[in-house]
Design a protein around this nucleic acid. Sequence first.
DNA 1: CGACTTACGTTGATCACCGAACAAAGAAGC
DNA 2: GCTTCTTTGTTCGGTGATCAACGTAAGTCG
Lengths: 398, 398
Amino acid sequence: MTFGSADERTVAGSPGDVLTLIGTGSATTRADLAKVTGLARSTVSQRVDALIEHGLVEETDNGESTGGRPPRRLRLHTAGHVVAGVDLGATHCRTVLLDIGGTVLATREDTIPIAEGPEAVLAHADERIKGLLAEAGRAPATLKAIGIGVPGPVEHATGRPNNPPIMPGWNEYPVPEFFAGRHDAAVLVDNDVNVMALGEHRNAFPGTGYLLFVKVGTGIGCGVVAGGRLHRGAQGSAGDIGHIRVSGHDDAGCRCGNSACLEAVAGGAALARRLTELGYPAETGADVVALVQSGNTQALRLVREAGRLIGEVLAGLVNFFNPEVIVIGGALARVHDHLLAGIRETIYRRSLPLATHHLVITPSRTGVDAAAFGAGLLAIEHYLAPDNINRIMEALPS
Amino acid sequence: MTFGSADERTVAGSPGDVLTLIGTGSATTRADLAKVTGLARSTVSQRVDALIEHGLVEETDNGESTGGRPPRRLRLHTAGHVVAGVDLGATHCRTVLLDIGGTVLATREDTIPIAEGPEAVLAHADERIKGLLAEAGRAPATLKAIGIGVPGPVEHATGRPNNPPIMPGWNEYPVPEFFAGRHDAAVLVDNDVNVMALGEHRNAFPGTGYLLFVKVGTGIGCGVVAGGRLHRGAQGSAGDIGHIRVSGHDDAGCRCGNSACLEAVAGGAALARRLTELGYPAETGADVVALVQSGNTQALRLVREAGRLIGEVLAGLVNFFNPEVIVIGGALARVHDHLLAGIRETIYRRSLPLATHHLVITPSRTGVDAAAFGAGLLAIEHYLAPDNINRIMEALPS
DNA sequence: CGACTTACGTTGATCACCGAACAAAGAAGC
DNA sequence: GCTTCTTTGTTCGGTGATCAACGTAAGTCG
């Protein structure tokens, strides 16, 4: 027998918790903190002083008075702490430097095939990170954590890719160890769709408990947020919806060896191939988007039909998972008017009313840097996690 | 921006946490507790003394010596605290009395249509609970919590059924309030499949993080355990997989208004109807089971085919959710040899190898009282939750 | 039958946290 | 412009939870 676990308590008052409250904006002054945590004002002051001494918090201007002494506002001290987010795709590497408040300091994008293998690609990314640090005028030692999104399943606890189909040479490669001697920073590795889901959740839907982020690009994948956290599943392969079967397409073979997979009929590569067959040459999802935007009715029809097929799969997942928000991202979402129409139509037809009543289905609000940004958030959240902060402050009693 | 929440810390040491460790068997002696919690032995003794004074813990025989003084074993004091679990079905009411160690003290089953409405049915259940208390020789005041599983979606936080299709008169009915004047006990209400999933998880797979419990009865439903806890979704309707579309059965109309729903082609009612059409009269899932057990090859064929269809849906969910264990329960699981064969066959064919590599697919190990027992566990876990214990002990400083 | 090992209680010391008093800084009223 | 009030934040002694060290209990081992 097992009981409920020990978390889920009322907001605790450790230094790390106090910092989290300041970072999230849940409390911006000492008096606020006292109210929210239930600690005495004196204790709060003591905690805040320690955080300020460690360079994690700073005082800003005074707030508005409400009839008495105006409060001193507190916020994260973003100067001495930055993180990097890295988005590795099949052929690209996007890098972003964030301060721990989540502000973008610098970005970089370039082309490198992930098939060149982990050493080459990670060395490349490391060069870019160093470049961004220099560009933003931040000392290398201020880099506190690195988040990396990769196009395949990852065992998040160890940072090792787990039989990734499109990353030759990366299987079981210990990514964090690569950076061990190069930076004094934690390295967090996750699937690219997961970090996009995280970024979208934290940015656009922070209060939401249950969110699906669907990326429609060459393939189709899904990031899952449950209870405000990423759901990775037992092997870290959760959200792999590209190979779920759809009705009526048993003739469509998929690279996975099965037929009628969602990806094989509604992915960007599949749409491009069918458009080529119809006499409109296209290779990638971007080409499909271009055809739609140029007014090609066949392309438009295909995208809408793809939306219906994606919607069929999502309708099942809505019943099963009961999310509050579904976000559609990826290359094909750039023509989201047509894609979403098909998706919405099918979900509202095939899902249970109770599950769709408050369901929001929306295009992604984050841009091309979504994955790198989400990877950066992963890094920030690790660095600012209460436990980590408590450890840091115990290690350096200042 | 939001950060990771404040839970997920190392095992804390509040009295409630200590009790949880004793209850789960994670630590059975004072010395154990000191090791696990990191508290000083003196502090642990103090905590344990308080728990004993409150009648929550008792000392048993001495344990085995490992070369020194033998430890005094601790366990939950089950005498003064019992809970009730209630399983309400379409036509039945099963009641079980458990001590807080999870031991069954008494059970009762009888027939009452849930359509008689909440007052009548709950009054009936309350009578049964009182009967079980008397039968087990426990004072009414020792009843600390009541768990109830109902055949429909529930808003778990308030205990109100949420547009349940087969529970006329129950919509929005505040179940906990019904018991307010009758017992000084918390009332937890949840979907019946959820409590079955909980029972199965705690009993058979306590270490598992991600488990699906699939109930194949008249209809088809699914309870979801994620991260060791029940996943209920945004509206509490998660796991409603009976109306997910399956391929190649577009002619099969469903009571929900759509066609090709899993339930409409593989549910017990659907199988019974088709067997009747084939000349083998059957009304319920139990009749189908009887036909299979009597060696009817048509029934056997249908059950196996139903397994394949259920497997098709589950294959998609395995990709999406990446569970470690899938448990098959419900009336039709009594012929699980045939049902599981079809399910396994399809899942291993259609799911990703990474997700199926360590996947266990197994029939339920819990019997006919699974739901009532699971409801009782829900009650126990609420009562023994660290926060609740801490509140109790602060309220009565003894 | 002592030496050793492990378990548990006791006790003075320590440290985190609290609450009350005090200081700071503005608003409101005259 | 002054006093009074309100809210914020700090200082400081007091209190209680927790700890580490020691002492006692109760076994095993040679």
